[in-house]
């Protein structure tokens, strides 16, 4: 089992074959699946939808790009994943427009819901420290996730690919279909937006 958080690039660079073997593809997917799920969930705020998108992305990568060199898999997978997220986001937006139109005819009941409530931690037992420390850490993590979810799409993509997927600027640019300069700009803006949002809530990293 590949450890969570292991850089995909580091994993793939170990492969010496120019074409990805079944084992390399399997290891790559195992290394990236949980981060991909979280990434999609941050963007869509819907875990079921996120699972579907990750599944579709894996299938497309295996069927269409399974014969590509192993070192290209992270970039190709991210491109497929981001396209899937954007397509789903558009569908949800259209659906939300209709829902909003229809909801004007129905009474409102939960307008004051706090978005942080939906990001409650599922399991914090494994965290070190006192109960108070664990609670504080869980709150910080939930806050960071909520702020990542609020970032503009392109900023979130660039930030997560660069700093979570461990992809370099050139790979990120290829996955996003933009210039390296744009990636740097998106990353810088995302970092400042996140830092400012955390600082406003009294959190510093």
């Amino acid at each position: 089992m590949v450890k969570a958080g292991t850089g995909a690039r580091a994993l793939i660079s170990e492969g010496s074959s120019p074409l990805a073997t079944q084992r390399e593809l399997s290891d790559f997917l195992a290394s990236v699946e949980r981060r991909a799920f979280r990434h999609a969930a941050y963007a869509l705020r819907d875990e079921e939808g996120a699972l579907d998108i990750v599944q579709d992305s894996m299938m497309k990568l295996a069927e269409k790009y399974g014969d590509r060199p192993a070192k290209e898999l992270p970039m190709l997978f991210q491109r497929i994943l981001q396209n899937g997220i954007r397509d789903q986001y558009r569908r949800l937006k259209v659906r939300a427009t209709w829902t909003t139109l229809l909801s004007t005819l129905a009474p409102k009941d939960d307008d004051d819901a706090d978005p942080l409530e939906s990001l409650a931690t599922e399991n914090t037992d494994g965290l070190a420290g006192t109960p108070h420390g664990r609670l504080e850490q869980a709150q910080v993590m939930a806050l960071i996730e909520a702020e990542i979810g609020r970032l503009p799409t392109r900023q979130r993509e660039a930030f997560l690919m660069r700093y979570w997927e461990d992809m370099d600027v050139a790979e990120t640019a290829r996955a996003m279909g933009c210039s390296e300069g744009s990636v740097k700009t998106h990353c810088s803006r995302a970092t400042h937006a996140l830092a400012a949002a955390l600082k406003a809530k009294g959190v510093s990293l």
Binding site: A4, F37, R38, E122, M141, T191
Partner: peptide
């Protein structure tokens, strides 16, 4: 900053059901 965020996000991966 990116490294610190990454550490925290990695920890959250352990909480997936």
């Amino acid at each position: 900053f990116g490294g610190r965020v990454r550490e925290l996000l990695d920890r959250r991966l352990e909480d997936i059901g």
